[in-house]
Design a protein around this nucleic acid. Structure first.
Lengths: 192, 192
DNA sequence: CGATTTTTTGAATCATATCAACGTACGTGG
DNA sequence: CCACGTACGTTGATATGATTCAAAAAATCG
């Protein structure tokens, strides 16, 4: 159940057996069926979720009822409404399962204790958030400076697994496009 | 010279006199005239820069020669090509001064030593990157889910000082628009 | 003041959104 | 296991909104 989590952790920061055992006591497994919510807008985000298996999405919903996907998550990724988690404010994002999923939850109090007690957990956290920051910066750069076809090509090159596993209209949402437009972009690309 | 840096630091993580003195030995002040580069695309980013005074921008340049501003920085902010800094790869962004600026540089080796020697520096770094992540996530959400006029209103509400200090065409670039479009958006807004 | 940069405006063009219809695949219940 | 219903992707026609190019007006700097 915790294999991937610790494989991921120790790849970033090596751990002793004792440390690993101690950290394990702070973790809570959770399974989610496809379409189930992990978090609903307006609720406070109580956990950070590490994804052991499956796929999730975090998204906001606008006035006209449209979903805007801010993040996908698959095995090995972390998903959460970090702002809500850290501040205790109501979440502005929804998170639900695109596929049946197995998660490892870290509650706020667990997170805080781990930061205090285990310096390596702080390093792990720092490296995680740094990676997430860099990935998002790339995405943002691509949005403001690349033509559509290139952006889609970047996306498929970067996340081939996601392209295969999630419906196209969700990728359109992630890219800030209508499904029709993405469909036409794909046709233009494959025509070449 | 270092006031703002340490005011900012201790607001996040309190420091003893000794710690502050020790950290100071790792810092290098630098002044930059308006239009001077701090970093050019293709060079390796050797430093993280804390801005004591002035204003800078980080941007990429596309094939057609257009600038796309990925980040503004003013007093109290940090600016850098973090990916290049951390990996040693050539920078993909340029950074230059919009106004005369006073910076505090932290080199790669200084950064690494500080992380090892001073746990509070790691906490400071973690909190900084977390803040930057959350700010960028807000920006991204606004791009993919809000209408233009609202996005501009958000921006002016969030960064009134930047709106006053930088030319409008740079804000257009930051928003991923042409200057003409931003001009028209502003007219539409003020017509109400 | 003169030169340069910045912002605004207008007209034509291009790209994306919207609305509607259709075809297909998939999963579920009968 | 089949049939039906739902979700998904594609296509077309039209509308909307942003870009582009050109020029003029306004603001800023030396």
């Amino acid at each position: 159940m915790y294999e991937l989590f610790f494989r991921n952790f120790t790849k970033k920061v090596p751990l002793t057996q004792e440390e690993e055992a101690l950290i394990k006591t702070y973790l809570t497994p959770k399974k989610l069926r496809k379409k189930q919510y992990l978090l609903q807008e307006g609720d406070v985000c109580k956990n950070i979720a590490f994804i052991e298996a499956g796929a999730l999405k975090a998204y906001s919903v606008d006035d006209t009822g449209n979903e805007h996907i801010i993040q996908f998550g698959i095995e090995g990724w972390i998903i959460s409404d970090l702002y809500s988690f850290l501040t205790g404010e109501p979440a502005t994002y929804n998170i639900d399962a695109i596929e049946d999923a197995e998660l490892i939850l870290i509650s706020k109090s667990a997170h805080e204790e781990l930061l205090l007690k285990i310096p390596k957990y702080e390093t792990y956290t720092r490296l995680n958030i740094t990676g997430a920051y860099l990935a998002m910066q790339k995405r943002l750069t691509s949005i403001i400076s690349s033509p559509l076809a290139e952006r889609y090509a970047n996306f498929t090159a970067l996340y081939p697994d996601i392209v295969q596993r999630v419906p196209q209209h969700m990728i359109a949402s992630y890219m800030g496009l209508t499904p029709e437009t993405l469909s036409r972009v794909r046709r233009r690309i494959s025509a070449k």
